[in-house]
């Protein structure tokens, strides 16, 4: 699996794609999956990160999501943000079509 986090990343969250729709989702603290990054559970440090990723296994096994992975996030005022441009685009939608993706659907 491709690496989408940084070695030594302090805060991480888990993302995946919904099997049926292919849409981007995030693992929440209670083990559900949300389309909003703001609902994502944030793990601090490597150990917590690995444990969070392991919690995605059940959803993979039940064919709810595919290809879960950790990515780096950072706390910002009122929530969290993805650190890399790639994950910022995944959480919002194409930067060239602001009428599409989560940026349009989630407001």
């Amino acid at each position: 699996m491709a690496q989408h986090s940084r070695k030594g990343a302090k805060f991480q969250a888990v993302t995946a794609s919904l099997l049926v729709e292919g849409l981007v989702v995030y693992l929440t603290a209670n083990g559900d999956w949300s389309e909003s990054l703001q609902d994502a559970a944030v793990a601090e440090g490597k150990e917590e990160g690995d444990a969070l990723l392991a919690r995605a296994d059940a959803a993979v096994a039940s064919n709810l999501v595919v290809e879960p992975y950790l990515f780096e996030v950072e706390p910002v005022e009122g929530g969290i943000n993805a650190s890399s441009v790639r994950e910022q685009i995944r959480k919002a939608g194409p930067t060239v079509r602001l009428d599409l993706g989560k940026q349009a659907e989630l407001g």
Binding site: S17, L19, V20, E21, G22, L23, V24, V60, S62, N63, V66, E67, R86, I89, R90, G93, P94, G101
Partner: peptide, 28 residues
């Protein structure tokens, strides 16, 4: 079969790719 869970993603991925279906950043 994939949607019913009879095929895993590892089994299904090469089959969907043979039909031009990729999983991209936001969607298939």
């Amino acid at each position: 079969r994939r949607l019913k869970g009879e095929l895993t993603e590892d089994e299904f991925k090469p089959l969907r790719l043979m039909n031009g279906l990729y999983l991209q950043l936001h969607a298939y």
